[in-house]
């Protein structure tokens, strides 16, 4: 009973497999913390690279994989203004991230994307920007920050508040130093009480409390918040209290995903697919969602 492999209706266009990724080469890898690593990934050819950057807008995500292990969702952590390669930053949490972490320079992984919506930065020209990030959630905002800094003249003031549990948990330390040194960026770093080292020169305190102390005026300012659920939960009320409108406050949702293309059915919040309608949402949108865990 061997199945007849003849197809009655011959496909009229080229067969495409939307689940088939492209191979990417690890061009560089960097340890951000003890368990967080950044990979710099080069495209297999100019055609793939061009196709990606024609589509890519900041805030979108991809699926990074290792054949035999599986795929994982992370944001693209590098901006569309830097078109020679892309970067991703992830914490080792399971089978796939362990395999990705073990890749050495010159070795390959797989990639699908870019997927999802993006931050509407073209609508933010001339506006001030406030970035609030916690721990391992800096990567999505890092892509926006570099996107803005690479087009610095088009935007107003840039303020960044970044916090982590301890000094050791701060990611992108060399870039933090670079942002700190710029006179057109206002960077405040903080660690949770007890997480400081002897030579720590930043703040000591939880992100929501430090935000209340250092936040810029809300007028003409877009706020972007990414962090662990508990940080988001306590930061959003502070932003609201400071006068940042919910419609101008952005965050990303990171629900479990498999397909990334609106089919596998697990990332939905209400009728919205985080993989299609997100991952970027305004707080105003989140408030209209059932149980968005905010």
């Amino acid at each position: 009973m061997s199945p007849d492999t003849e197809s009655a209706a011959a496909p009229t266009r080229e067969h495409r497999n939307i689940y088939q990724p492209i191979p990417m080469t690890v061009a560089d890898r960097r340890d951000e913390t003890a368990d967080v690593r950044t990979l710099r990934l080069e495209f297999p050819g100019d055609a793939e690279r061009t196709r990606f950057f024609e589509a890519y807008r900041v805030g979108q995500f991809g699926l990074y994989g290792m054949p035999g292990q599986g795929e994982c969702v992370f944001c693209v952590a590098s901006p569309p203004t830097r078109t020679d390669a892309i970067e991703c930053t992830f914490r080792q949490a399971g089978r796939v991230t362990a395999a990705l972490r073990d890749r050495e320079v010159g070795q390959r992984i797989t990639f699908r994307g870019p997927y999802g919506n993006h931050f509407p930065i073209e609508q933010w020209k001339g506006k001030n920007l406030l970035f609030v990030a916690g721990g391992i959630a800096l990567p999505p905002l890092r892509a926006v920050i570099w996107n803005i800094l690479d087009r610095r003249d088009e935007f107003g003031k840039v303020a960044i508040l970044y916090g982590a549990r301890t000094v050791a948990d701060l990611v992108y330390k060399h870039e933090l130093a670079e942002w700190d040194a710029r006179d057109n960026v206002d960077l405040v770093q903080t660690v949770d009480p007890g997480g400081e080292t002897d030579d720590w020169r930043g703040k000591i305190g939880f992100v929501p409390a430090v935000l209340e102390e250092v936040a810029p005026k809300p007028a003409d300012t877009i706020a972007l918040v990414c962090g662990p659920p508990i940080m988001i939960k306590f930061t959003l009320p502070v932003l609201a209290k400071l006068g940042f409108p919910a419609a101008d406050t952005y965050t990303t949702l990171e629900n479990r995903m498999k397909c990334g293309v609106g089919k596998c059915g697990r990332c939905n919040v209400g009728h919205l697919y985080v993989c299609k309608d997100g991952p970027v949402f305004t707080v105003e949108q989140l408030k209209a969602m059932p149980h968005a865990d905010m």
């Binding site: 054949p67 795929e71 596998c264 059915g265």
Partner: peptide, 21 residues
């Protein structure tokens, strides 16, 4: 129509499966 995607491999070959979920 919900599904899971799972990789399985031998030493020389791997497959990515789409399984009902």
């Amino acid at each position: 129509h919900c599904f899971d995607m799972q990789d399985e491999a031998t030493r020389t070959e791997s497959v990515r499966l789409r399984n009902w979920d």
